[in-house]
Design a protein around this nucleic acid. Structure first.
Lengths: 175, 175
DNA sequence: ATCCCCATGTAAATTGTTACATGATTCG
DNA sequence: CGAATCATGTAACAATTTACATGGGGAT
């Protein structure tokens, strides 16, 4: 049917792997993700799921004997098709470099006094190293629980962050 | 005053480097950027500049003798302060790994037939290499014209894309 | 009982996209 | 003089955030 947005694709893909699951659980996964971008507030995820239900890409079944109105989501046949199309369609937006807020801020560095430039770059390095350490911990956890897909994605984040560190140390030498 | 969004910060930072410049020129720079995320449509950039003007972070001066109503933007004293604060404020959203659409799609790979998994990964590698080649051309151009800041940012994009390639070749071996 | 998590959602406001609309200037 | 580019902007729609609002279930 209609093309999926990034968030729709990610949600549909998650549900397809972990079905049946609640909307609440989908949201929790996004919230716990180490990646920025996806805060996935209630105000975005519930309407999004409703939209996917109406488009018949998801189906829901009410849980009996649960006063909370818990509903389990599953992907439909059309949902699987839409998901495949989404994964296959590789246009420029999917391939192009993604905006790194640190890189964005680097444009402004020259306007700061030299001492503060160095201080900031050092701070960015320190914080990025912390994140990498966190990622490594998560990778170990993922390996223990045998979650190959999660480990794979975390490894991508690790490499991305290490690339940033490489760049920051090049930058440091320039200053 | 109020905290700047990424787009506001980027715009303000750009204007602070290249002032005086028109809103149209700001938009052109964003459009030509190799980074996805910033399509910076007229419908986003003109209202954004208006907002920064109202907040007194920018000032504009009408160009005389230009029937197009060309207005030149400059950063104000408060604008400089806001920009400094924006660059200095390094919270989690600034540091955390950024969402890579390819990484997002990788979650779904396992659901595809093995042959198609390999085909997709190969395709992603090919397209990513193309982008890297493009970046290298831009870097050379930037070096010739002596645009240090641009070269610096492009180098960050290059490293980010190379990290993705490294990851894709690890993935390839897994399959 | 009480606290935390599960689970649902809505309302208002902001932000951003797509598509449209207009006209001036510059370069060949 | 015609085409590309410069330059401004708006209108309708879509997506997202922030903040609010409600209540059940399970563990101590």
């Amino acid at each position: 049917m209609s093309d999926l947005t990034e968030l729709e694709g990610a949600a549909l893909s998650l549900i397809s792997r972990s079905q049946p699951m609640t909307t609440y659980a989908v949201r929790s996964v996004f919230q716990q993700s180490l990646t920025n971008s996806w805060s996935a507030s209630a105000g975005s995820i519930y309407p999004l799921v409703r939209k996917l239900l109406r488009a018949n890409l998801l189906s829901e079944t009410q849980q009996k004997g649960d006063g909370r109105g818990t509903k389990m989501l599953s992907i439909t046949r059309s949902g699987k098709t839409a998901l495949r199309d989404w994964v296959r369609a590789t246009d420029a937006n999917v391939i192009d470099p993604v905006a790194d807020p640190i890189r964005t801020r680097s444009h402004y560095l020259d306007s700061l006094p030299s001492r503060e430039q160095k201080r900031l770059v050092t701070e960015w390095q320190r914080l990025s190293r912390n994140v990498i350490a966190q990622i490594k911990v998560s990778i170990e956890q993922g390996q223990k629980s045998g979650d190959r897909l999660e480990v794979r994605a975390l490894r991508a984040s690790q490499l991305q962050m290490e690339a940033r560190l490489t760049w920051l140390s090049e930058l440091e030498k320039e200053l």
